[in-house]
Structures are given as C-alpha cells and as structure tokens.
Design a binder for these strands. Structure first.
Length: 463
DNA sequence: AATATAAGCAACCGCATGGTG
DNA sequence: TCACCATGCGGTTGCTTATAT
C-alpha cells in the first residue's frame, strides 16, 4: 500500500507562530478569500484557550474520534490530526500533569528496556501519561543521564558489586561511580537509534540439521501461572483497574526471548512485573552457524551513536545527523546470517504478532566523525559497556553466551524493586537485561518480511 | 544585567496500518 | 483488488524557559 500523507498534509495551512507571526504555506488559498479556501486555511502552532474550548465541547457532544469532521463542523481551523493530538496529550480527562514520579520513572525504564521506543505501549502502562510525555522524558532526562554517566535509576534500585569482581569491572571503576547504577545502564542500555535498513532474507538452508535447542517463547505458549497472576494487583498511584501489561499478555506481541536457555520442555519463566509463566520450550532446529554464529571476533565492537548534539564543533546536515552505517551493515556477514534465521518463520509458522525486534550488530568502526566526538562517545560508552563488549568478543558458541552472561550478571546484585501491592521486581524478573544482550544475536523467526527493517533502536549501546 | 547555552515541552511531519466502499 | 480515508505511532523540530557564564 502506498503511504499517503497525513490529514494535515497537502492542505492549505496557516502557520502561526506563538509569537504572533504567521506564514502562509501556499498562495493557493491566499487572496481567494472565504469560501472553500478559507475552510482549508488550517492553523498550526500553539493552541489557544478558545480552540481548546471548541475542541472540548465537540468531544463532549460527539465523543472522541472522527477528528476531521470536527474541522468541518466547527469553526476550529485545525486538522483532525492536530485535534486528536491536542485532545490526547492535553485535554482528555484524567491526564496526569507534572513531573514523573520515581515509580513512574522506574516503570518507564523497565518498559523501555522491554519494549524499546514503543512510547504508546509504554503510555498504556502509565495511566494519565501520554506517549509524547514519555518520549520527551526519555529523550531528555534519560539521555542526558546516560551522556553524563549518571545512573538511569534515581534511587531505590542499586546495583551492588560483589567483592568477587568480574574481570572487566576495573573498567567500570575507572569511571565516576554513581551511588546507584541501573543494571540496564551497566548492561548497555539504552539501545542506539540507528537508521532503518532492509534485510533481505537469504534462502532457507536445506540442511537445518544441526540442532540447537533454542527457546522461543511465543505469546501463545505463555501460560500465566494463576497463582502469580497480577490481574488483581495494582501499582501504587496508578489506576485500580487491573493492569494488563503487554509484557505479560499472552496476546501481546512482546514476549520473552531467552537465548541462553537451551533446554527443552516445560520451563518456568519469571517476567516483569512478577508474573511467572510455565512455558513450553519449543526446540528449534538451527544450523549452528546461523543463530549463534561466531562473529568476526577480532574486533567485534558495536557502534556507538555519535552524540553530535554534544559536539557543537561538528556541523552536520539535519538529514544526516546520525551517520548511516549502511555500508557496514551491508557488509556484515553476521547480519546476513541473521537473515537466514529470519526464514525460520516459515519453518515454525509464527505470526507477525510474535515478532521479535531485529537488531543488528556491526563490527565496524565509528562513522566519520570528529576525533573529539569519537573520544567522547567512547568515553560515554566505556562506562558500563566495556564489560559486555569484551564479553561478546569472546563469544563463539551458545555455551559461551550462557557462561558469559552468568559471568556478567553473576556479580551484579539487584535488590528487589518493590512496586507495592505485593508486586516485586526481582533480578530474575529482569530478564529484560538478558534481552538486551540477547538482542545482539536476535533474529526473528516469528516474522519474516522482505522489507523487514532493523533499527538502531534495538542495538545495544556498545563501543 | 546581558548573553549564551541547555533543558523541557508542545506540536508537526512522515509513515504505517486498518477499515470501507 | 484497489483507492481512499481515518487514525495511530515514532521521530523530529522549534519555541519557551531555566540555568550558566
């Protein structure tokens, strides 16, 4: 289907800046005066109280939806899209205003670790909050914290390093040590935004005979364990409506991927925020060189997003703010292998709803940026990522992965995060962090699409 | 006090998806 | 099957406000 423009697009608009200035986007309606042309003169910019009143009155009478009719049936010169956004983000009842609470921030962190940049889905778990709010929150506070080497978590979640340090811990200690460190930060989160790239699946190899028992937990295979079901739980400060997290919904498109689990049969999986699933682990036949392909171990480093905005000395066109490492992805043999893996969908008839996000890793160096930028990015990413980077460089087999993960997280202790009402996020339930590491090797047997795109969004932050 | 810079936020834009005729 | 429409989502922009120099 051909993508089309949004409702506002293509219509004559009047862009009115908050300072009062306005620009007409086209001369088509200008000068014709009144009539149809006037109807097409859509206003942009900040909403006024009068406009809000019109919008609220319309919704009160007609309910939500049919936003374009609003523009036709009222004097409001706003496109439907704009109306919907205004209503959703500012006018609808029960909106929570003000700063995020610590609990909300924690929840966002957990959700983001699970979902990535799925703001709307995250907002669904935060009553009264909008996707835009969450997105802004993440893009400002969180990114700033990461850039500054501050902990993602404010308080309450503390990572304690055991006396028995892992071999890579000295790397961490060379950096400023925050009082509390989120495990996600240590383990290379958030992911990098990367440009989209189409992955062309490779032909399915005929010789899928070399077995690796790979855990695929499709939503349909997730059976909530009744005595752990959270349907009757609620989070403090949130709606008393039973929270049905997409993370735990069997119908959700999000589910646990446990690449380190090579067993078969019924297994128990604890998922945030505390639900336990009895899961049938489907054995998957994979050629050993496909799923857990040993990447070019030599310099298997991951690309860090250049934080160009922090380097004012670098002037880069807006369109290429983030260097697009297309070429390096194209040349990445591992990625092609992942493409092979994608074809497994056919093998197991998994549904798009079961899709995993694809992430790709690269073994190339930074995009062309200034040396200073490289250093900065390097420094920013050394903190908390070197251990993973080093770990991954040594990975060559599934057992390596498993052992490596244990090595990595075995020395990190995270106290349970009490969300109240008996909901406690334990370290076990933070399988999400495993996901981040797992994502490096991620593939999507659940959904194959020749236009399948991988994004940097899912790429762990590595250097 | 003036200016520069950073942070916060609202709104827009492009694209994707699903429904309908 | 196709085109069109409505809606939703995520990324980005640019203005306002806060903070630093």
């Amino acid at each position: 289907m051909v993508a089309h423009s949004g409702v506002c697009d293509g219509l004559e608009t009047v862009l009115r800046r908050p300072n009062g200035g306005s620009t007409s986007s086209s001369s088509a309606s200008g000068g014709s005066g009144g009539g149809v042309a006037a109807k097409h003169a859509l206003k942009k910019g900040t909403w006024t109280a009068a406009e809000d009143a019109i919008l609220m009155e319309y919704v009160r009478k007609n309910g939500e939806g049919n936003w374009n009719a609003l523009q036709k049936n009222t004097s409001l010169a706003r496109c439907g899209k704009s109306c919907r956004l205004r209503w959703t983000n500012h006018l609808r009842p029960n909106l929570k205003k003000g700063s995020f609470t610590q609990e909300e921030e924690r929840l966002i962190l957990h959700l983001h670790a699970q979902l990535g940049n799925k703001w709307a889905r995250m907002a669904a778990q935060l009553p009264g909050r909008t996707d835009n709010e969450i997105k802004n929150f993440w893009n400002t506070r969180i990114k700033r914290r990461i850039r500054q080497g501050l902990p993602l978590y404010l308080t309450g979640i503390t990572v304690e390093k055991s006396p028995a340090s892992s071999p890579v811990q000295p790397q961490l200690q060379s950096q400023p040590q925050p009082q509390s460190i989120g495990p996600a930060a240590i383990r290379g989160w958030p992911p990098l935004p990367i440009p989209n790239r189409t992955i062309s699946p490779l032909p399915i190899p005929n010789s899928l005979t070399n077995l690796h028992s790979m855990t695929i937990l499709s939503p349909k295979e997730l059976v909530p364990n009744s005595h752990h079901d959270l349907n009757n739980s609620s989070f403090p400060g949130f709606s008393t409506t039973p929270q049905t997290s997409p993370l735990i919904s069997p119908t959700s498109s999000s589910f646990q991927f446990s690449p380190f689990n090579f067993n078969q049969g019924l297994q128990r999986t604890t998922q945030w925020p505390g639900t336990v699933y009895d899961t049938f682990v489907k054995p998957v036949e994979l050629p050993s060189n496909q799923l857990f392909l040993s990447p070019p171990v030599k310099k298997s480093v991951f690309q860090a997003k250049p934080e160009l905005e922090t380097n004012p000395g670098v002037s880069i066109p807006k369109s290429s703010r983030i260097e697009q490492p297309e070429t390096l992805l194209e040349s990445n043999e591992s990625l092609q292998k992942y493409g092979d893996l994608l074809n497994l969908q056919d093998e197991f008839s998994l549904k798009p709803a079961d899709a995993w996000e694809i992430s790709a890793c690269s073994n190339n160096s930074y995009p062309e940026t200034s040396p200073g930028m490289k250093n900065q990015v390097k420094e920013e990413n050394e903190y908390g990522n070197d251990e993973i980077s080093k770990l991954l460089q040594s990975i060559s087999t599934p057992s390596d992965i498993s052992e490596g993960f244990n090595l990595l997280v075995g020395n990190i202790t995270m106290p349970p995060l009490d969300l109240g009402s008996g909901v406690v996020v334990t370290e076990d339930s933070l399988g999400l962090d495993m996901q981040q590491i797992a994502s490096i090797f991620q593939a999507d047997p659940g959904y194959i699409d020749v236009n399948r795109q991988a994004t940097w969004d899912n790429l762990p932050r590595m250097c």
